[in-house]
Design a protein around this nucleic acid. Structure first.
Lengths: 340, 340
DNA sequence: TTGTAAGCGTTATCAC
DNA sequence: GTGATAACGCTTACAA
């Protein structure tokens, strides 16, 4: 299993090495006869150019670095479609994807850039404040796209779901279906401490939208993503309340949507009949729940696709103009059985 | 943001380029004074070696290619911990991970090897028969480890959960807790057609173990991973049957565990009280179900860790001797609330 | 203990 | 239209 080089191809085709290169890249005109001879040699030897050498010469690795959130207890549920879409977008542009985990912190970024392992970086799992990777990323001299919106992007492109629009979508749906009372399950203390930006964006927009509709809106605060917290929240929905009004509950934490639905059922409150529930979660998750829950999707595929569009624009700017610095993807609501 | 080279370091430290190299690799003794001078220059310039150049010279990329199953409707639920563990194992050995999806088929393998993008490959999502990537992989001239066991591994190392032991573990648990009647929910036609090897391994071992315990064992066949199928299966569990005996159900398809549990409840059969259910699924999934289900885990972390051990042994054989050609990882059963 | 220099496989600038 | 040839940044004999 020896790997052939362009030298072998050149010898076999009776041409110079540079001609082989030009046949591969098409960067200068080649007579049809030699082109065919070279191509035959390439095919016969199943020659493929050595990427390391190519990168060394051209200063372009054709590799995208992808930093994904792993370990440290982060909500890792919906991360797979992001990875999948980013990989296939990269491959569609004939680029490779180098996977790194966020637990290496800013050192990982420095390694990726310093050792010239990639031409550009996609950074997932962005915190609102105090993410020390942002200044490092901004100073890398490489195109970097953030999936998420930090308080100060420091000039980096950001792509994320439009969480404000997501909240409005959910509230509007409940308003239009005649609900007159809104409950939003809040986030755990840890998340709010870390100041994940989208939390604020979502909650603020939800209360504003409720006010616009003249609906009373209660935020049940500080819910850990555990069964017990979901149970606790369900206990706060008084059956009496449900009898006098049409109550809609928005659950922005995907991990507790299912436990919450179950806790309601266990208390004799049937989602979709006695009250309504809208979850903020992936479509597959929503589909598999009991009952299948009306959801606002995180649109991982759209978000990643746009992130990669921004990235490739930064790698090769076109006259079409730059992508938006902060690119917020419109959410989508899918009706299932949990809204009455 | 210029990238410094070892030449810059050499100039700054007043030594030759090779001395810089030897300081970095430690492959020959360096006097303490020059070592310090060189190190100071390295630190000052934050020099990092260009990986492309290194790979070109040393013929070692220090990259592991990872092929993961995406798209084409495969059960993609438990794949994240595999990726995570493989990535951190690679990093622990100072290797990078290049991510590719299985939808590129054998061409993807040829590209990874032919362009010398990596030193070795981990191939997930192995089919029992007719996977045309196996012969290609076997002929690549690179170490390749399969996660999964094809009918003919063609000399490649395989690592997988011991599905036979998993089935036995589940059956033994039900036998020991006094069950006298066993039901196993079977696999969908599509999966059996594709002949995913572990299906057969699991079902055969389950029936054998049941026979050993003298328990009647019924396999409900051809269940698609949909709610309707789960409902259908639940309907086959006659309440009369439950009254006269202690029934244990094994659900090897993780996607239908939750729907099946719910379908039972809806029929008034409480898992953990009226009958028992054991699922074959990840621990996180089992933990989040309603009710939390006793499960046999797929042990993605153990499997990937062992896969990487095999891989690194193939890259640098040690006197310790080779890893097993077919490395089956022992499963683990976690008791929750679904077994009475 | 350190330096010189060749070469890894590619691309691109000169020449012809 | 095509062929030499000089880099790209690194490692590693071979010298000194």
């Amino acid at each position: 299993m020896v790997a052939f080089t362009s030298k072998d191809v050149a010898r076999k085709a009776g041409v110079s090495q540079s001609t082989v290169s030009y046949v591969m890249t098409g960067k200068r005109p080649i007579s049809e006869t030699t082109r065919l001879r070279v191509q035959a040699a390439i095919d016969e030897l199943t020659y493929q150019p050595n990427q390391g050498a190519r990168a060394l010469k051209s200063q372009r690795t054709r590799v995208i670095g992808l930093i994904v959130p792993f370990g440290h207890g982060v909500d890792t549920a919906g991360v797979l479609p992001f990875i999948e879409t980013i990989t296939s977008s990269a491959r569609a542009q004939d680029h490779e994807v180098l996977l790194n985990t966020s637990d290496e912190g800013s050192d990982g970024l420095r390694r990726l850039a310093g050792r010239q392992l990639c031409d550009a970086i996609v950074l997932m799992d962005i915190l609102g404040h105090g993410d020390d990777r942002i200044p490092v990323a901004a100073d890398l001299g490489l195109p970097v796209v953030l999936v998420g919106v930090p308080a100060d992007p420091m000039g980096l492109s950001c792509v994320d779901l439009d969480f404000a629009a997501a909240a409005e979508l959910a509230v509007d749906e409940l308003a239009e279906t005649g609900h007159d009372r809104l409950v939003v399950l809040g986030y755990p203390a840890e998340i709010i401490d870390r100041d994940v930006n989208y939390v604020r964006r979502f909650l603020d927009a939800a209360t504003a939208a409720a006010a616009r509709h003249g609906m009373p809106c209660e935020v049940i605060g500080s819910l850990e993503p555990h069964r017990a917290a979901a149970d606790h929240a369900a206990a706060l929905i008084e059956p009496g309340l449900v009898e006098i009004g049409r109550v809609g509950v928005i659950v922005p934490q995907s991990q507790i949507v299912q436990p919450f639905l179950h806790a309601l059922s266990a208390r004799g409150l049937r989602p979709g009949h006695d009250l309504s529930v809208i979850g903020l979660c992936t479509d597959v998750a929503a589909e598999q729940m009991e009952p299948p829950v009306t959801n606002v999707s995180l649109e991982p595929r759209d978000v990643s696709r746009r992130a990669m569009q921004s990235l490739f624009w930064l790698l090769e700017p076109t006259p079409a103009g730059p992508p938006p610095a902060i690119d917020l993807i419109p959410p989508r609501l899918t009706r299932r059985t949990s809204v009455m």
